[in-house]
């Protein structure tokens, strides 16, 4: 049986992730009628992954502490490259330089997916938002992360908006300024 070359395997690895995620989304859709509840579940799953995968990322990337949101954006960009082999663009900074967009031209999670009209309020890739939010929280950055353009809904890109909320200082319990 012929061994698949490295690129063949990488493609298949991407399919393993994409197919598994698709089956999970289908399952969650069965369990929850309201799509915004499904979005919340996917976000929670992502958050739980984000708070763990950050250690893997920091261990493999001699990243010093990100001094500003620009460096944070670049770190997220390299994480996307590392984990799903896609290089998102960083851009659309606001004036305060604390909110930006990650734009993905291709989205490996959606390669087998078509979204029926009645699921227009589903954010299929909400998992990404949760992962980013969870990972950033572990490096003391509270953020709001949401999908603002979705390649499953007519846009030819997927755009994820990341906005800084506040710095989490370890000394204070979360929520107290």
């Amino acid at each position: 049986m012929a061994r698949q070359g490295r690129s063949g395997e990488t493609k298949m690895e991407g399919e393993l992730l994409a197919l598994t995620y698709g089956a999970v989304v289908a399952r969650v859709l069965k369990d929850y009628e309201r799509t915004d509840e499904v979005n919340a579940q996917l976000d929670k799953m992502g958050y739980n992954i984000g708070v763990r995968i950050i250690d893997d990322f920091l261990a493999k990337n001699r990243h010093g502490r990100c001094k500003n949101m620009q460096e944070t954006a670049e770190a997220i960009q390299s994480a996307f490259k590392q984990y799903i082999n896609v290089q998102p663009q960083v851009g659309k900074w606001n004036d305060a330089q604390n909110s930006f967009s990650l734009t993905l031209d291709t989205n490996p999670l959606t390669s087998f997916v078509e979204l029926p009209a009645e699921l227009s309020r589903l954010y299929y890739c909400q998992l990404f938002c949760g992962i980013i939010r969870g990972a950033l929280e572990m490096v003391q950055l509270e953020t709001k992360v949401q999908i603002v353009a979705d390649n499953l809904k007519g846009s030819n890109v997927t755009e994820i908006r990341i906005s800084f909320v506040k710095k989490l200082v370890d000394a204070l319990p979360v929520g107290e300024d």
Binding site: T10, V28, M45, I49, I84
Partner: peptide, 30 residues
């Protein structure tokens, strides 16, 4: 390129996920 690493974190999350089914057996069958 480590999409397998992300898959592994995702699978571990599924294994520990509390939202699938009312009890352990249902979780396993899902």
């Amino acid at each position: 390129m480590e999409s397998y690493t992300l898959f592994e974190y995702f699978h571990n999350e599924l294994a520990n996920w509390k939202g699938f089914g009312a009890d352990k057996d249902e979780h396993i069958s899902i």
